[in-house]
Simulated scan of single mutants.
Amino acid sequence: MRVALFITCVNDTLFPGTGRAVVTLLRRLGCDVEFPRAQTCCGQMHVNTGYPEEGRRLARHFVDVFAGYDAVVAPSGSCAAMVREQYPRLARTPAVPPAAPASAARTSAAPVPATASAARTSTGPAPAGSGSPGGLITGTVEAPAGDAPGSFAAEVAEVAPKVYDLSEFLVDVLGVTDVGAYFPHRVTYHPTCHSMRILRVGDRPTRLLEQVRGLELVPLPEADQCCGFGGTFAVKNPAISAAMCADKVRNVTTTGAEVLCAADNSCLMHIGGTLKRQRTGVRIMHLAEILAATEATR
């Protein structure tokens, strides 16, 4: 099976080890994994903050980059949900022409990298093997020249259903829950909002964790409550966000867990900051990193 890794901005910039863990895990399970370096941001923050046209440009680029793969796997329920749920809506909505020449000039200028890491590494070395993430996104997005009627929608309909959160791909596509992992630690799991409420991954992540040898999985009180991150929500509403995170951290510490696991590093980064400031000693780890761990790697 030819699988593409969709690394996402947060992971490419701040958590490249998560991307490497996904590659390690999927190759161990027999997948032919590739890392398309032309990939960029999926456009989630643009659409969610009122810039649908900028988001549409990124969506067009995404379907071009990831067309032809059997599956596209993302270590982020949030970004996978953006592609599966928002892209079809963007494709159905007529594009809005630029309102003024200044706007048109801005969109027709030289292509701009869609992530900070793209700008940083556009001339960097090629990844090892077929591609190993870590600040290696090099894609740029051109202003669209226009689509034939229905062509963008057809492309989205072809690509979007093949985009999976990691746990979905493992359980539903590969049909596995025991991935041969070993992680002898006490772990609690936080179900992130997009993976739980939009993708509806349900118990797939915990079913995978339950099969990890040596791992003790302990339930997280009020697990379904948001951690308070919410992307730009944490920036626009810092006091509310911090209060929500404090509640989440209090529940994490009552479990006695050594490690807090989740499927989105953005949420883990948010919770992890408070865990560290309170000197709880609880580590954060992405689901992929735990599932990639074996006795040989410890």
Rank of each mutant, 00 (worst) to 15 (best):
A234K: 10
S266L: 14
P221I: 05
A91D: 03
D147E: 13
P149Q: 06
A95S: 13
T232P: 06
C226A: 09
R213K: 15
P205H: 03
V212D: 02
T140C: 06
T138W: 08
D147M: 00
C267Q: 12
A104S: 12
V171A: 08
G273M: 13
D178L: 01
D172M: 05
T123E: 11
V10D: 13
G77H: 07
G68H: 00
A105C: 12
R89A: 12
G50R: 02
M45D: 15
Y182T: 13
T138Q: 14
T280P: 04
V259E: 08
P113E: 00
V282E: 01
E258C: 08
L199T: 10
I198S: 11
E142N: 11
A223R: 10
E295C: 11
M269G: 14
V22C: 02
P133C: 09
P98G: 03
E158T: 15
L215R: 08
T255I: 02
T138S: 14
R213Q: 09
T93M: 05
A119H: 09
V249A: 01
A153T: 03
A21E: 02
Y189W: 06
V112D: 08
A148Q: 06
R106Q: 08
L199K: 10
V282A: 04
T232A: 13
A145I: 06
R298I: 15
F35K: 03
L275F: 09
C79V: 15
A80H: 07
V179M: 00
P205L: 09
T24A: 06
C79G: 15
G124F: 06
T93I: 08
G19Q: 07
